[in-house]
Structure formats: C-alpha cells, structure tokens
Write a protein that binds this DNA or RNA. Structure first.
Lengths: 186, 186
DNA sequence: TTCTTTTGAATGAATATCATTCATTTTTCT
DNA sequence: AGAAAAATGAATGATATTCATTCAAAAGAA
C-alpha cells in the first residue's frame, strides 16, 4: 500500500536512513535499493529528492556535520568565560558530544566515511572558533595576528588525535586541551 | 599484439595510470576499463595485480603519499639546524614540492581524492615531525611534554590552510610558518 | 456533503554501466 | 617441447539511473 508524505518529511527520512547505512556499511557497500528498502519505498523515489547517490551521500554528511557542530558549540553560547576556561571546559572531542552515530562510525569499512565527516566538521567549526579567538584577542588573552590561521590550526590540529583510535576519549580530550593551552600561550 | 612486461613494471604502470585518472576524474567516474584502456591492456589484467578497484585506489594513494613525503622531507636529512631554522626554511606546503600531480588535483570532482591524499600524507608525516620535535626538545629548544600531540597539531593543523584554495602558495607557507613559530614558542 | 478534477508523490520494470571472474590464449623461460 | 607466468576479453551479477504509469489526497464543483 502506497504511503504519501510531506516532501520535507520524506526527504529527511531518506537522509537519515542513508546516513545510518552509509555509516554502518560504507558508501560502496550501501546501494540505493538498500536505502529504499530500509524505508519501505521504491528506489526511484530517492531520485525525486536527490539527483544521484553521491549527492545523497554529500547531503547526508553535510547535514550530520551541522548537527554535530551544533551539539558541540550549542551549549555554551555567548558567555563571558576566558578562552582558557572555554578550553578547559570543552568537550574537546566532537565524538564526546554526539548522541547518535558518530562514535559508532569507527572501523575499517567506514574509515573513509569517518574521514570525510571529520573534515566537513572541521570546515564548519573554523569560522566559529575564529570568532572565539577574535573575542579573546580583543580581551587581550592572546596575541597573535593571523586569527584565521590560528583557528585552522586549533581545529584541524585535533584531527590527528581524533583519528587515532587506540586512545580513550579522556586521553584525547586531555591531550588536546593541554596542547591548545600551550600553543596559544594561555 | 600482446605485450608482456615484468610484473613490477606492469604493476607500477597500473598504479601510475590509476593515480592519474583517479586524480583527474575522481574515484567513481574512473572505471577499471578506463585505466586498462589508457595503458592499452585488458581490464582483467588489473585484477592480476590488485584484488579490487578500491585496493588499487588505496595503493595508488599510499604510494603517492610516500613520494610526496619523500620530496618534502628528503632534502634536509640529519643536519643540525635549529627547529626554528627548519621551519623557516621548509617548503611548508607539500604541494610546493610536488613535481607531478598534487597541485593539479584541485577542483570539485576530485576534492575527495585530494582530501584522502592529504590525510594520508599527514599520517605519514607525523612520526617524522615527531622525531624533529623530539630532537629539538632534547636540545632545549622547546618545552612541551606530549611531543606526539604537538607533532599531530603541527602536521594536521596545516590541513586547514592547505585545503583553502583561494590562497597563493606563498601565502599558505608564510601563514603556516608564522603560526608554528608562535605556537611552539620559538 | 458527495462527486470530479488535478497535482505530484510513488512505483518498479527497463536500461546502461561497471566491477569482478575465469576459461582460454600467448609469451617467456628452461 | 613443456611448464609457468602474463594477458585476454567474453560472461556474469550488481546496481545506479531513467521514465512511463499508477494512485493518494487536496481542491473545486455540484
């Protein structure tokens, strides 16, 4: 029996299911038919909402990166903590904050998925961290001119530690915090 | 007419051709047949040397990353420069050193290729940078305990700047150098 | 309210394009 | 010549993508 839904709802349903499957089995191993079957619709329907499998993949990652960034940053908005306090209090690791999939997305099959997601998250995080640093600079907490470069290093620099999988969450957080405090002269 | 070659030679030929095509058109858009045709052999031959398309892709990236790292590090071996000098003299950007493809591998279609290659290069660079930092620490040039974390930040941190494409090579190098000198207190 | 029309969401068979396999052919080496 | 290794390319099986058709439900007419 055919079920019709609001385009927005259906699109979201496809995105969520795609994210789940891509994350579990990887891009190659997940077929459009798999995704459609998991939802209970015809494969053709996916093409009503996304022009190609790759576009669907990109959208899924894009949206999920937004969610992660939101979870990561969302909690402490415009407060007045010092940069050092922010770093000491921060979850440090995006994974630590995630309540959905991210932390389950480790492993060999989905390494590429994980890598791409991480890069996308970094990309979205940079401008936000840039603002943090800008504010800290104005308050005289740090003195370095090229704030954008600093923000990039702070964000992407974490990747190395994050992508290391023989470390506990705790360990990763601690090492990131300590380096940031050292590097920014805090 | 059928041409036979030394396995090592043929394998290399496949790797090089694969790298070129994957870099130009991306993973999805490049078929095994494309690669074979470009060399002038049958598709089946690729499977004599690599178990799957993905394995071929991984090998190609792996090997190219080795070449890039070699080009990047190779020149100044075991000398006695200070860390600060090394940073000031360094090409800073892997791309700057590359004489083959890397710098041509930008653009939308091959962004994923480029990203994966960059991550692989970082991965290989970390242990080398770690040694540099270790030496500098022993000479008292830097004082930070977690050398591995520092190395990761120094290497991966560059990614943000490297992956920004609206900057000249010069600009990238300069910004990276300045941040590193600041962050490591040099 | 009940019937009719219209829209666009959903279907799924059909097509095209590969990745991958393997029986066969050709070359090389002893 | 005979064995071993390298190369071929037709065949197979998936699966991404297309599109003519079907149907649910909203909007309008009676």
């Amino acid at each position: 029996m055919r079920v019709t839904k609001e385009p927005e709802v259906r699109k979201q349903e496809i995105l969520n299911t795609a994210l789940k499957l891509f994350g579990e089995k990887g891009y190659e191993k997940t077929s459009i038919t798999d995704i459609a079957k998991a939802i209970g619709v015809a494969q053709g329907l996916c093409y009503r909402y996304f022009p190609s499998k790759e576009a669907l993949f990109d959208s899924a990652i894009e949206q999920y990166a937004d969610i992660l960034v939101e979870q990561y940053i969302g909690s402490d908005k415009g407060n007045d903590k010092t940069l050092r306090q922010i770093i000491e209090d921060m979850p440090s690791t995006v994974e630590e904050r995630d309540t959905t999939y991210y932390s389950a997305f480790h492993g060999a099959e989905n390494k590429k998925f994980h890598d791409q997601l991480s890069l996308k998250v970094c990309e979205k995080l940079v401008p936000l961290v840039e603002k943090l640093l800008q504010r800290a600079k104005q308050k005289g907490e740090i003195q370095f001119d090229d704030i954008q470069a600093a923000a990039m290093f702070c964000v992407y620099g974490q990747l190395g530690i994050l992508l290391t999988d023989d470390l506990t969450q705790e360990d990763k957080s601690k090492r990131i915090r300590e380096f940031l405090i050292f590097a920014l002269h805090l």
